[in-house]
Structure formats: C-alpha cells, structure tokens
C-alpha cells in the first residue's frame, strides 16, 4: 500500500502510463481527455471528456485509468465524464504532435478547430512521410473517428490526418 497524500500531481504522472488505445505513441494526458483530477474527501475523482461521442476507445481508457489507480494503491476512486468544454485537438501540445508525425499520422493543425470546416476550403495538410504540402483528402472519415484519410501527391503514400475539431 502506497502512502496516499491529497496531492494530485503524482496521479497526473501515473496516468501518463496509459497509451491512447488506438494511437499508442501518445498517452491519454497528451491526448487531452483528462480534464481534472481531484479529491472529494477520501475519494479520488478523475474527470474525462470523450474525443468523439461514439469513440469506442473511451471505455478502454476508463478501464485503464481504474487499473492504474488500483496499481498505485488508490482504492477509492471514480471516473466521471463531462461533455463541456468539448474536446478539441487544440489541446494537443507540440510534443504530442511531433510524436504523431513520426508515427506517420499528420498532426491536427493548430487553431483551425471549427473554422471553415462546413464549406470553406480545407487547409493543406503536410505529408508526414516526405513533408510535401501537395496532398489530397480522400475521405473525411478514416480508420478511427478522429482521423481523415489523405494521400500525398509527391510520394504517393496514403496517410491518416488527425482532423481538427
């Protein structure tokens, strides 16, 4: 049994052990789904927000959080889901974006969330393989809810783009 303090800082560290189930190169803190961690008397509450309403990975993340908390000796805890403020790719930091790129997924462009997505022109996405800006969207919907499918016109490789929301 680990000695528990009312500090939440170590818990933020522990939760970094949990990879995104669908994109294992980034952890759930980097993904931005952990909104808050707090103590309600002797109960620990982890507040999460879904990336997409129907994202099947959310349940897995919740189970993983419970496992990690148990592993580190926290016995009384709960995971709560909130919808507002709604998750945005803007919460992903530079380091996480770079990890995505190296993994072969074009990272979401910053600050474009919600803008011009309805009928405006989509911004050019850079190919994560060769760095070319000459790319083409093949489908707005990709292998998971959070990605779109692109192809590079220079190196011809298809790739996933982590789309902005």
């Amino acid at each position: 049994m680990v000695t528990q303090t009312k500090d939440t800082q170590p818990i933020w560290e522990y939760l970094k052990e949990i990879p995104d189930p669908e994109i294992p190169v980034i952890n759930i803190i980097e993904l931005g789904v952990i909104r808050d961690i707090k103590w309600n008397d002797d109960e620990l509450e982890v507040i999460i927000t879904p990336t997409y309403s129907g994202c099947p990975a959310m349940q897995e993340m919740e189970d993983d959080i419970v496992k990690v908390l148990n592993k580190h000796g926290y016995t009384k805890h709960k995971v709560t889901t909130v919808l507002s403020p709604s998750w945005t790719t803007d919460w992903m930091n530079e380091e996480a974006r770079e990890k995505l790129r190296v993994y072969g997924i074009a990272p979401p462009m910053k600050g474009t969330a919600d803008k011009g997505v309805l009928f405006g022109k989509m911004k050019a996405v850079t190919c994560p393989h060769c760095g070319s800006g000459d790319t083409e969207m093949k489908s707005q919907f990709g292998s998971t809810a959070c990605k779109a499918l692109y192809q590079c016109n220079s190196c011809k490789e298809p790739f996933d783009y982590f789309k902005c929301i």
Binding site: L83, P85, V117, Q140, F141, K163
Partner: peptide
C-alpha cells in the same frame, strides 16, 4: 443539453459537409 449540443455540433458539422 447545452453541453451535449456543443459536443455533437462538431461531429455533425462533418456529417453535413460529407
């Protein structure tokens, strides 16, 4: 309902575009 709408609107924007 407001939080639900905020979340869903982002998704439905893509549905409408598609």
């Amino acid at each position: 309902l407001a939080a639900f709408a905020e979340k869903s609107l982002k998704e439905v924007t893509y549905h409408l575009r598609h």
